[in-house]
Design a protein around this nucleic acid. Structure first.
Lengths: 227, 227
DNA sequence: CGGGTTATTGACGTCCCTCAACAATGGTGG
DNA sequence: CCACCATTGTTGAGGGACGTCAATAACCCG
């Protein structure tokens, strides 16, 4: 049974619930649907193109010289992000099937920012969102053990995803998680099973994590807890 | 023999050589000197306070729940950075003795940004600088082996530091490097000696690294090279 | 000179990456 | 609908890399 693709109107209604400064441009925003692994266009204008994640997930990643891929940022529903023609060769692509984005042409954003100084300021705050996300990721990756990383990752995901905090639906594969945490896929799997054996989480299906004991999970997320 | 502390006028001349959009506010900028490990004030206004590094080095770091410290960003001469009253408890402090900063009051920056849309745009680009730095760091930390991390770190430092690229003066201790790369201090040391044995670098004193063979160093900076 | 910080090297144990095999899943076409 | 195949997920064995503990050296500054 395949998930039904929603109408453009459906996504536009979801978009209306957002609370960003950008919402003032919603009238001019285009709703775009992406398949898994499909690249988000950069539209190489001068101005930085803006996107808002309605549903699904998006990753920004870079390829190392040795071929490995490192996910640099992970955008979830409710997140806003810019796409600039970076000096590095990094790609931005949809992770989940049927990822819905609202697209704000850089031209329009730039114009409004020039007219409205208050809007320009909120735009800057939006950029700090990205910075904050990357800081969190840096702290997660900087962990010593793999269980530490996976635990922090799950907690971060739980706090970012809307609704019930005790159940997290992973929008990414184990491979994506591995590339995000800079560990091998096998280690990610072993960490999951280990956390399950400790009674911290329970896997309901491959992609759904129920947080059984948050204390144990938080304890595992720092090095003292793992010992 | 202690390095002579320069006059405020000396630093102001160095500041005049900068090429940022912020230079228009140089007249209102204050020159501030910091000792090693001295914290940079946040001035908790609403507006984000701006700093330009004239000489020395600054680190932004966070303390983990297990007590370890992670350096989240490293600012070198020529870099511009903002200090916002972060939701996380992170500290910003000088690394090197006699670190000289130009301080741009958030109030003034905000005002000019409101008057001049072009300036506001350049301000946004300045924020992307920070983003770019953190992306580089994420790629470095995401490396597998320690030698990989140290090699990338040295190369990044060499490309960021002005002047002769074949000689890098480390503004930070081994401990700082360890906290930046998220590895132990001992491993940092071993990586240095290992790179020296391979003929990639040569340690001239504890804090000066001469890059003997850049090819070997670049080869060590990806995993294929380390094998 | 003396004490505190910084830097280096060794021994040891553990964690994780690699290779490998296999299971489970999902989509496609007959 | 089922067979097939690619993708995704899981578990085991083995070896190398790194963290920890420890001792010592080098350095800085009073």
């Amino acid at each position: 049974m395949k998930a039904k693709t929603h109408s453009s109107e459906y996504y536009r209604q979801m978009l209306a619930t957002q609370d960003h400064a950008i919402k003032r441009l919603n009238g001019h925003a285009k709703i775009m649907l992406f398949a898994r692994s499909q690249e988000i266009p950069i539209n190489s204008e001068q101005a930085a193109h803006g996107y808002y994640v309605i549903s699904g997930a998006v990753r920004r990643s870079a390829i190392r010289s040795d071929g490995r891929r490192q996910i640099l940022d992970l955008m979830l529903p409710g997140d806003f992000f810019f796409v600039v023609k970076g000096h590095h060769d990094l790609t931005v692509e949809a992770i989940a099937e049927d990822t819905a984005l609202a697209s704000y042409p850089g031209q329009l954003v730039e114009q409004l920012a020039q007219r409205d100084a208050h809007f320009a300021r909120e735009l800057r705050d939006l950029a700090f969102q990205t910075l904050s996300r990357m800081q969190d990721q840096l702290l997660i990756i900087g962990g010593i053990t793999a269980i530490e990383k996976v635990s922090s990752f799950l907690l971060a995901l739980a706090s970012r995803s809307a609704g019930a905090k005790s159940q997290v639906v992973l929008p990414l594969t184990r491979y994506d998680i591995a590339e995000y945490l800079a560990v091998s896929v096998e280690t990610v799997c072993r960490s999951f099973t280990s956390l399950q054996q400790r009674g911290a989480i329970r896997l309901a299906g491959k992609r759904t994590v129920r947080i059984i004991n948050r204390d144990v999970l938080e304890e595992s997320s720092d090095h003292a807890g793992v010992q």
